[in-house]
Each structure stands twice: as C-alpha cells, then as structure tokens.
C-alpha cells in the first residue's frame, strides 16, 4: 500500500515529507462497508493514507466516493468495519480495562480535530461574512482569541486570494470565490487530513481553474494529507501521489498516476478513462 517508498516519481517531489514506514498510517479503512437500507454502497474497503499523502479517488458517479469521504469526516457511520485515525478507531473507544465501547461525543470530537472536509456545494454559513465564516471554528473549537483567529483567517484567505473580501457575505461571491472561502475555512483548522469532495463540480466551467490552482498550491505547500475526490483527471495526475479507482463500492485498481492513467490494467478503468478523452 505504501507505494511512495519504492516509487520513482516520489523523487520528483523532494519537498514532500516521505512517510516513515514504521509510523501507523494516518488513516486506515479496515473492511469498511456502508449500507443504506437494502442498498450496499460500500462493499468492504481497505485503504490507507500516509501522513501528507495526496490521494485521488476517481470512479463513476454513484460508485461511493462521497460516502467514503463522508465516513472519514464522521458524517456517516460505517455499517461494519473500522476507520482508524492515527491508530484510533473513530466510532469506538478503548476503555482502560481493554474493552471497546461505542465512541462518545468527546472521543469523536477529539479525533475529528484531525479531519477536515470541503463540500461540493460549499456549505458556507450564509448569515455570516467571509471573515466570520473562517474565524468561527478557530475561536469556538480551538479557543483562539479574536485577534489570533482573525490573523490566522486573514493569512489563509490571502492564500486563496480573497483577503480583499473579508466583510462580504457569501451571497455576493461567485461560486469559485465561495469555494475558496470554504477551503480557507477548512484549512484554518489545520487538520492532518482533508477530504475534498468534487469541489469544482458545482462550478461554472470558467470558475473551475481558479479553485484548482488554489488546490494545487495547497497540495504543493502543505504537509496535510488530502483525499481528493475528483473528476478532473489532469488535476489528479498532477498532484496525486496515488490514485484509487473505485466502482460499485469496491476498489478496482490503484497505483501511481503514471500507472493508473498510463497503463490501466482493468477493462473497467480503461473504459472509464476513455470517457475523459
């Protein structure tokens, strides 16, 4: 699974931290399934993310990519299997006696502090200005002072090119600007892993570029692990360390961008990729 170590293209990205083989993976899906009523949408997934790793998740729509990401963000609970973050299970706690019991709120909130998510439809808070959207969680969750939170938020908004819109309300921003605010809002919490769920697919085509550019910069500069759910194949090829192709709730094929896009092995993947020209 830890293909970065043997993989030559890792050498082309020398500024990237190379994962310590002995450290536990940052994220580990173990035999995860998810069922909505009768419909099993995730059918036994094993997947790991190393610290700092940039993982692209591709596949036809309806294959369960969003569900996989939402489960990491604790928005959905697996039907069976476990998701570990730094070796700790999201939905279970180990008691001093060694027994495991269902996680309580405190446990979930502690682990969730490592995880961030950016949504397809932004989900900005419409009743708050840009700066309030970005400072709310740092102040309330991290306990930063107003000044600290403001400073951190402005820096982050600067990175996404929106530090001139601090007091604007979301309704007055373009889709691309909204999504960049949403990215800043998630980044300011400094999670160790962030799920990006098709962050450009709700945007007008001419606005996709500005968001992808921001994402590339983040991928290049940050040692945060990223789970990139995307239909932008060039983008995935560009920034991913590893690409996972899934279909119908299973992982069909995974490998380096060069492998996946250059020498797809399965018929499934070949026909999927052919649709992107």
């Amino acid at each position: 699974m830890n293909q970065q170590l043997a993989e030559p293209s890792a050498a082309e990205k020398p500024e990237r931290p190379v994962a310590d083989a002995k450290a536990p993976p940052l994220v580990q899906y173990e035999q995860v399934t998810k069922r909505y009523g009768e419909l099993e949408v995730i059918k036994g997934i094993d997947l790991t993310l190393q610290p700092g790793e940039k993982l692209a998740l591709i596949g036809p729509s309806g294959s369960g990519k969003t569900t996989l990401g939402r489960m990491l963000a604790t928005l959905e609970k697996p039907t069976s299997g476990r998701i570990l973050v730094e070796g700790e299970s999201l939905w279970e706690m180990r008691m001093p006696s060694g027994k495991t019991v269902p996680a309580n709120d405190r446990h979930l909130r502690r682990l969730r502090g490592n995880i961030g998510m950016v949504f397809q439809h932004f989900n900005l808070f419409p009743h708050m200005s840009v700066i309030d959207n970005v400072t709310l969680a740092p102040r309330s969750v991290l306990g930063l002072s107003k000044e600290e939170a403001h400073e951190r938020a402005v820096t982050m908004l600067g990175k996404v090119g929106l530090d001139s819109k601090l007091s604007e309300f979301p309704s007055r921003l373009s889709g691309g600007q909204k999504q960049r605010v949403a990215i800043a809002r998630a980044l300011v919490m400094q999670p160790k892993v962030m799920v990006f769920d098709e962050v450009t697919s709700a945007l007008d085509p001419e606005l996709v570029g500005e968001v992808l550019a921001v994402m590339k910069e983040i991928a290049r500069d940050s040692d945060m692990a990223m789970m990139l759910i995307t239909h932008e194949m060039d983008f995935a090829r560009d920034i991913a360390d590893r690409v996972v192709f899934g279909a119908e709730g299973r992982i069909v094929e995974q490998g380096t961008p060069a492998d996946i896009f250059g020498q797809p092995r399965s018929e499934r993947l070949r026909s999927f990729l052919s649709r992107f020209g």
């Binding site: 963000a73 604790t74 928005l75 969730r112 995880i115 998510m117 969750v141 998630a186 919490m189």
Partner: peptide
C-alpha cells in the same frame, strides 16, 4: 454537516 466537519459543539 459543515458545522460538524468544523468540529463545532452541538
């Protein structure tokens, strides 16, 4: 969901 992803309390 956004509030939860930001780890805000209930």
């Amino acid at each position: 969901e956004a509030a939860k992803a930001l780890n805000l309390s209930r």
